[in-house]
C-alpha cells in the first residue's frame, strides 16, 4: 500500500488557542479515511490547513511525497486535493451544470484570446468540459437538474452537486467536510453508496463526519482528534473500543 498523503506534526494556533497540535497522520492510496472528534476538536481546522485556506504554523504536509504548495488554495486544488464545505458553498446563481464546469478550471487552458477567437482547440476544450460535467452530474445522480440554479436544488442534491464539482477537479484525494450533515437516513444511505463508488473508481477519500455510524461503516481507518491533538488512529473497531476515544466522547455514546 502506498502513501498518498502524509501530515507531519502539523500545528495551528489562533490567538492563544492551539487549534491543532502536532497532528501526524498518513492516508494510503485508495482508502476511505475518517476524521472524527467532538465539536471543536479541530477537524475543520485541519481541513482548512490541508486545503491551503489557513497557513499552518508548523509541520509539513506531503502529497505523493512532495510538499503541498503553500499560500493558496487554488494550488492545492491543482496539486490534487478537492474539498467540499461543511456549510455547502455552491455558486448559487449558476446552474448545476455551470457549477461543475467551474470545477474543470484548473484542468483546462483556454485564455482570453482563445475564448474570443473560439478556435478549434477552445471549442474542443469547451465541449469536453461540458461533456465531463454532464457525466459527473450523472455520476452523482442529479443530471436531471443540470439546468437548474444551484440555489434551487434541494439540500441533498446540493451536497451531491458539491461533490460533483469537487470531482471535476480530478483530485487524487477528495476531502468531504461532514457530507451527511442534515441528511435523513435514506439520503445518508445513498451518500454512502456514492462515496463507496468514488473509492472504487480510484479516488482516495478523507471524510470528516459527525455521523459516527456512517464513519464506522464506511471508513477503512479512522483518526480521532480531541482538543487539536490526535488521540487515536486505527481501524474503526479498535478505535471504538479505545478508552481515550470513549473518554473524549464523554464516556460512550459512540457506535
Amino acid at each position: 500500500m502506498s502513501v498518498l498523503l502524509e501530515a507531519r506534526h502539523v500545528g495551528k494556533c489562533f490567538g492563544g488557542i492551539q487549534a491543532l497540535q502536532d497532528v501526524s497522520l498518513t492516508i494510503n492510496v485508495g482508502e476511505i479515511y475518517g476524521l472524527i472528534g467532538p465539536n471543536g476538536a479541530g477537524k475543520t481546522t485541519f481541513f482548512n490547513v490541508l486545503t491551503g485556506l489557513y497557513p499552518k504554523d508548523s509541520g509539513a504536509i506531503l502529497l505523493k511525497g512532495s510538499p503541498l504548495p503553500l499560500g493558496s488554495p487554488h494550488l492545492v486544488a491543482e496539486a490534487g486535493i478537492a474539498r467540499t464545505f461543511q456549510n455547502i458553498r455552491l455558486f448559487a446563481n449558476m446552474t448545476a451544470l455551470e457549477n461543475v464546469m467551474v470545477g474543470r478550471h484548473a484542468r483546462t487552458r483556454a485564455s482570453v484570446i482563445g475564448a474570443v477567437l473560439h478556435d478549434r482547440r477552445t471549442r474542443a476544450e469547451e465541449s469536453a468540459i461540458e461533456q465531463r460535467a454532464i457525466q459527473l452530474l450523472h455520476y452523482v445522480g442529479i443530471a436531471d437538474r443540470a439546468n437548474d440554479l444551484a440555489r434551487h436544488l434541494p439540500y441533498g442534491d446540493q451536497r451531491r452537486l458539491e461533490i460533483a464539482r469537487a470531482l471535476a477537479t480530478e483530485p487524487a484525494l477528495l476531502a468531504l467536510d461532514e457530507p451527511a450533515a442534515g441528511m435523513n437516513a435514506t439520503e445518508t444511505a445513498a451518500l454512502r453508496t456514492l462515496i463507496d463508488g468514488i473509492r472504487v473508481d480510484g479516488i482516495t477519500v478523507l471524510l470528516i463526519e459527525h455521523d459516527v455510524k456512517l464513519v464506522m461503516g464506511l471508513c477503512d481507518r479512522v483518526a480521532v482528534l480531541d482538543y487539536g491533538e490526535k488521540i487515536a488512529e486505527d481501524i474503526p473497531e479498535r478505535v471504538q473500543s479505545n478508552p481515550k476515544v470513549i473518554e473524549a466522547y464523554l464516556g460512550g455514546g459512540i457506535g
Binding site: L90, V112, G114, A115, V116, E126, R165, A166, A168
Partner: peptide, 27 residues
C-alpha cells in the same frame, strides 16, 4: 465570447463565492 468561456465562468464563480472558487482551483 468571454461570458461563455472558462474565464467568464471563473469571474462569475468569484462573484458568487470567492472561497469556493479558490477551492475549485481558480487563481
Amino acid at each position: 465570447r468571454l461570458e461563455n468561456s472558462r474565464i467568464g465562468r471563473a469571474w462569475v464563480a468569484i462573484r458568487e463565492d470567492e472561497v469556493a472558487a479558490k477551492a475549485c482551483g481558480i487563481n
